[in-house]
């Protein structure tokens, strides 16, 4: 099934909330001018709105996205694949959150203080486990992408965030709007939206 560009942009906003054009384009995996043109078309249809410089869904846009997402999932096989991938995601999710917390805070002798990133051995251990988790997350993303191609973009974005962190951008693991954690958070939201579940 080919999905229209506008559907991709609409759904990107559903999973990220209000965001500036640059981030919407990055999440949708499209050039900015194209994304902006799609957003304007969606706004004409009353599905998105722009406030304080950021784009977001209207209630009608939210309902329309739910309808389109449900249609995408209509094939019984697709639903089974996404359900199974979600179960695997839920096993990885607490570990990812442990890792983000361990990157931000460090507990020694029962005292928790912010990680000042002055202990390369500790940071190295967190980083290695991050990379290990990323490798275990990859097949889950690939299974999802095989069923619904839009999930492929998460794999690219997660890999890119890890790459930036590896290149020295320490905030790209857990502390920026383009961080591994934020991408993961959106993947979590996408799975919940796609399966019509609520956050537990």
């Amino acid at each position: 099934m080919t999905v229209s560009r506008m559907t991709v942009v609409l759904h990107a906003l559903r999973c990220m909330g209000f965001a500036e054009l640059t981030r919407v384009a990055d999440v949708a995996g499209q050039p900015e001018p194209q994304t902006e043109s799609d957003l304007i078309d969606l706004a004409v249809d009353g599905l998105v709105t722009r406030e304080l410089g950021a784009w977001g869904l209207t209630p009608a846009g939210r309902a329309e996205d739910a309808r389109r997402t449900a249609d995408e999932l209509a094939g019984a096989e697709t639903r089974g694949v996404v359900d199974a991938a979600y179960e695997k995601f839920l096993v990885l999710n607490p570990e990812l959150l442990d890792l983000c917390s361990a990157w931000q805070l460090r507990t020694i002798d029962g005292v928790t203080t912010p990680n000042d990133h002055r202990d390369p051995a500790y940071d190295g251990r967190v980083f290695d486990r991050f990379a290990d988790l990323d490798q275990r997350a990859e097949p889950v993303c690939l299974e999802l992408a095989a069923a619904l191609p839009r999930f492929g973009r998460y794999r690219e974005r997660l890999g890119a965030a890890l790459g930036r962190a590896r290149g020295g951008a320490l905030e790209e693991l857990a502390d920026s709007l383009t961080s591994y954690h934020v991408v993961w958070f959106q993947l979590h939201e996408d799975l919940l939206v796609t399966l019509g579940r609520t956050r537990g």
Binding site: P94, L97, C100, S101, Q104, L105, D175, S179, H181, F185
Partner: peptide, 11 residues
């Protein structure tokens, strides 16, 4: 303490 909200707040 290791939830999405906690991670974002600390960030």
């Amino acid at each position: 303490l290791a939830g999405h909200a906690a991670v974002v707040a600390r960030s």
